[in-house]
């Protein structure tokens, strides 16, 4: 397509925006979660990716097995003392900008397991952006959290996270 034809096809559809908004829009609509299932909540996380609920509507269906390709860590389930260092390593391996959703009561606070074996809240080792209550939260809850996160990402733009 020649340059004239391109200009023709665009017609008068010119959009002006700030770079921050554009980047925020792009990032917010393509949040790729790391495939990081821990316990019962992970099953509901899988359910979110299936046809019934369909997380793909929000641009997040690409669950990446490698942390280096993902923007979002969904901590779906209880984090044991043995798993905690590994979780932190995975978080460190993710490239900036990155976000964390703490899914379920266990990840957020330890849930019903107030004992020696579990980390009482994943926010002790990684910064959490959105907490989801529930044991397990419904898939719709996860979608809701994702939408809240998208709002934040869009508002954040290109600025580094505070």
């Amino acid at each position: 397509m020649g340059i004239e034809a391109l200009a023709e096809s665009l017609g008068k559809n010119i959009l002006t925006t700030s770079l921050g908004k554009l980047v925020g829009w792009g990032r917010g609509n393509s949040v790729w979660p790391a495939q990081f299932g821990l316990a019962c909540c992970a099953i509901e996380m899988i359910a979110t990716a299936t046809a019934g609920v369909d997380i793909a509507r929000f641009g997040s269906e690409a669950f990446r097995a490698s942390p280096r390709q993902s923007d979002l860590m969904i901590v779906s389930g209880r984090v044991s003392q043995k798993m905690a260092p590994i979780l932190r390593t995975i978080y460190d391996q993710m490239p900036e900008p990155k976000w964390v959703i703490s899914m379920g009561a266990c990840a957020s606070t330890g849930g019903v397991f107030n004992n020696y074996a579990l980390l009482q809240g994943v926010d002790k080792i990684v910064p959490v952006d959105v907490y989801i209550p529930g044991c397990p939260p419904r898939p719709e809850d996860l979608l809701n959290a994702l939408m809240i996160l998208q709002e934040r990402i869009k508002a954040q733009g290109i600025l580094p996270r505070q």
């Binding site: 330890g110 397991f113 107030n114 004992n115 020696y116 074996a117 579990l118 009482q120």
Partner: peptide
């Protein structure tokens, strides 16, 4: 051995 966890 204490159950552990945090006080509620």
């Amino acid at each position: 051995y204490p159950v552990g966890g945090e006080p509620v």
